[in-house]
Design a protein around this nucleic acid. Structure first.
Lengths: 334, 334
DNA sequence: TTGCACAATGGCAACGTTAACATTTTGGTG
DNA sequence: CACCAAAATGTTAACGTTGCCATTGTGCAA
C-alpha cells in the first residue's frame, strides 16, 4: 500500500507525540524528569508506530556495544554447551548479549581469533582454547578489547579461566589411595589435548608426592573403544586394583573390557572417570567420576568482561575445581 | 603515558595519510578508483594507528547488521551443539555473525523471544522451540525481522525447519517390518516434548499403514534408567521381538534391561534407538539408530535469513530426514 | 593550444541516538 | 504579584561511516 517505511526513529515518535526527540529518549530510559502524562503520550506513540531503539545509533553514541564475543575453534566439544549456558547466564545478568564466532583453525592462533572478532560489535572477547595456539606466548590482545582465554595456562596479558584439571587428578588419586589402593593406573588421551595432558601431570605428580612411582600409562583416544582395549590389557596385571580414566567414555569402556576378561568392577578392580557425562546413558551402574562446573567457567569469563564495564580490571587467572562424585565403581580396600 | 585515545576512526587515518576520509573508506573497501600508491599509503596509516572499522557507524550507515540472532529457551539440549555448528557455518559463509540469547521460559512464548531480540543488533532471528509456546498460533514476527522457527510445526508467518521426526519413525518401523518382525514396540518420552510426540505419531501411523494395531507403548523419560525398566517389562512379552526407543540412552538402557532378564540382543529381541549419541560411549556394540543432521538444520535456518539479505523471501517449511545407521542390535528374521 | 573524457580525490550530508547545555514552564514564597 | 528555584522540555552537536555529487588532475585527440 503505502511507501515502505525504512525504520521508526525517535524523530518519528517525537513528531507524533508532539514532543522533542530528547523527551522521547528520556522516556525510553524512564528518566524521572519527564511528566508521567507526557511519558504516557510518548509511549502511546511508540506503540502506535512500533518503535524499537536502533542498536547501531545507540552504540555509536555510547561507544559501547554491551556484547561479548565468543570465539571457538571447535563448536562441538565436551562441556561447550554448559559453558555457553554460563556465557548466556552471565551476559543476561549484566544486560549483555553474546556473539558467537567459529574461527577457522588454520592456523590455530589467537591472532586469527582476535582479528576475526575485531570487526564485530563486541566490547570484549572470550576464546575457547582446545589446543596450544602457535602464538600463545607472543599474542597481544587488541587495544581496548578485554580478552579472556578459556584455558588452564596462564597468560601475561589475558585473564584465563578453566577447570582445574591438575586438582581433578589429585582428588581422584588421593581418593583411591586413601581407600587402600597401592597405586593408580591411568588411561590417558591424545597428547595434543591441553586439558588431558594436565590431568596426566596431576596423576603423575600426585602419585610421586605420595612416594609412588607412576606405572606405565595407557594412551587412549577419548573413545570407549580405546578404554575397552585398555581394560582388557590391564585385566591381566595383578598389581592393578585401581584405574583412572581421562574421561567417562573410556572409563566405561574400560569397565566393559575388564568384565570381558572376567574381572568384576568394583570387586576386583576400581574404576574412576572424569566428566560425569554418563548419568542418563548408562543404566546399571553409577560411575565414580569428577563433575566439572563448566557453566561456572563460562560465567566467570563473561563476568570478567561485562562486570568490569568501564573500569579496566586487571589480569586474573582462575581455576575452578571439580567435584568428585561417588558412584559404585570403587572398592574400599581398608 | 599520553591521553587515552578513544578509538581510531577514518578521520585519524585520513589525517595521517594526508587524504580525505572518503579515500580511506574507499581503500577499506578496495575500490578500484584509488591509485595503488595512495592505497598503500592509506594502508600504512591504518596499520600504524591500528585502525579497525567501527561496526556501529557502519551499521548505522548501512541499516544492516549482518548478524542473525538465535533465541534459545534451553541452551542445554541434545543436538544444540550441532545446530550451533550449523548456525556458525552458515553465518560464516555469508559473512554474518551469530548473536546468542537465552530467553527466560516464563512465560514460554515466541513473543518474549521476539521482544528480547528486538533491542539487539540483528537482521533476523532464529528461535529454537522445544515445547509448544503459548502464543504459537497468534504470534507475528517483528516487522522487518525475518523469523525462522526450529520446530517441525508449520507456522503461517515464519519459516520453519527441523528434523523429520515422523519420517524417522517411519524408517525405523519399516526397517524392522521388512526384516520380518510382526510388530514394533515403542518406548516413548515425556508428553511435553514436541519432537518426541511426533516420533510417537510416526510409529503409530506407520504400523497402522501396514495394517498392524500398535501395541501399548511404554512411556519413558529420556534416561537409560527408564529404558532399563522398559526392557525388563518387555522381556516377559513373547510377542515382543523388536523395540524402538525414542532415544539412544533409553535404547541402551533397554538392552541392558533385557539382558538382565536373560534376553539376548539381537538374537532374541532387536532394539533401535534415535540420536546416534552413543558411538564413542558404548564400547561393545554398535546400536542401530537414526542419525539426524542438526548441523544442516542450523545451516538452513541461517541461510534462510542471511541468504535472502535484502530480498524478502517467502515463508518456507523444511523437514530434514535422518539417516538410519545400521548397527548390530537388529536381527533379520527372514 | 584548446577541449574533452576519464581517472582520482574531496566535501557534505545523513543514518539514530543521547550528553550537555539552553530554555521554558511550574509551583511556591515573600 | 513579582521573584526564584526546581521541574520539564527543547536545541545542538557529535559518535564513525559512506553514498552522492562536486572538484581537481591527467592524458590524448583535434
Amino acid at each position: 500500500m503505502g511507501a515502505v517505511k525504512k525504520s521508526v526513529s525517535v524523530k518519528d515518535v517525537a513528531r507524533l507525540a508532539g514532543v522533542s526527540e530528547q523527551t522521547v529518549s528520556r522516556t525510553v530510559h524512564d528518566s524521572p524528569s519527564v511528566r508521567p502524562e507526557t511519558k504516557e503520550r510518548v509511549r502511546a506513540a511508540m506503540r502506535e508506530l512500533g518503535y524499537r531503539p536502533n542498536f547501531a545509533g545507540r552504540s555509536l553514541r555510547r561507544g559501547k556495544f554491551k556484547t561479548v564475543g565468543v570465539a571457538m575453534f571447535n563448536i562441538t566439544g565436551t562441556g561447550n554447551l554448559d559453558r555457553m549456558e554460563g556465557f548466556a547466564a552471565a551476559a543476561d545478568k549484566h544486560g549483555y548479549a553474546i556473539t558467537l564466532t567459529k574461527v577457522d583453525g588454520h592456523p590455530y592462533t589467537l591472532e586469527s581469533a582476535s582479528s576475526r572478532m575485531s570487526a564485530l560489535p563486541v566490547d570484549g572477547m572470550v576464546v575457547i582454547m582446545n589446543r596450544m595456539p602457535a602464538d600463545f606466548g607472543t599474542f597481544e590482545p587488541l587495544p581496548g578489547m578485554q580478552t579472556v582465554l578459556v584455558t588452564m595456562l596462564e597468560h601475561p596479558l589475558c585473564s584465563t579461566v578453566d577447570n582445574d584439571q591438575f586438582d581433578c587428578s589429585r582428588q581422584v588419586v588421593e581418593y583411591l589411595l586413601e581407600r587402600g589402593h597401592k597405586t593408580v593406573h591411568f588411561i590417558s588421551c591424545p597428547e595434543r589435548s591441553l586439558s588431558g595432558m594436565r590431568r596426566e601431570e596431576g596423576w603423575r605428580e600426585t602419585l610421586r608426592a605420595h612416594g609412588i612411582e607412576p606405572p606405565r600409562l595407557i594412551r587412549g583416544d577419548w573413545t570407549a573403544q580405546s578404554g575397552y582395549a585398555a581394560g582388557q590389557a590391564l585385566a591381566d596385571d595383578p598389581t592393578c586394583t585401581a584405574i583412572y580414566a581421562s574421561n567417562d567414555a573410556m572409563a566405561y569402556g574400560c569397565i566393559r573390557g575388564l568384565e570381558s576378561r572376567g574381572k568384576r568392577v568394583p570387586q576386583d578392580v576400581s574404576v574412576v572417570g572424569v566428566d560425569d557425562s554418563l548419568g542418563d546413558i548408562v543404566p546399571d551402574r553409577r560411575l565414580t567420576t569428577v563433575r566439572f562446573d563448566n557453566k561456572r567457567v563460562g560465567m566467570w569469563a563473561v563476568d570478567k568482561i561485562a562486570g568490569a564495564d568501564g573500569g579496566a580490571s586487571g589480569v586474573e587467572h582462575m581455576l575452578i575445581p571439580g567435584v568428585l562424585v561417588e558412584g559404585d565403581t570403587v572398592r574400599d580396600l581398608r
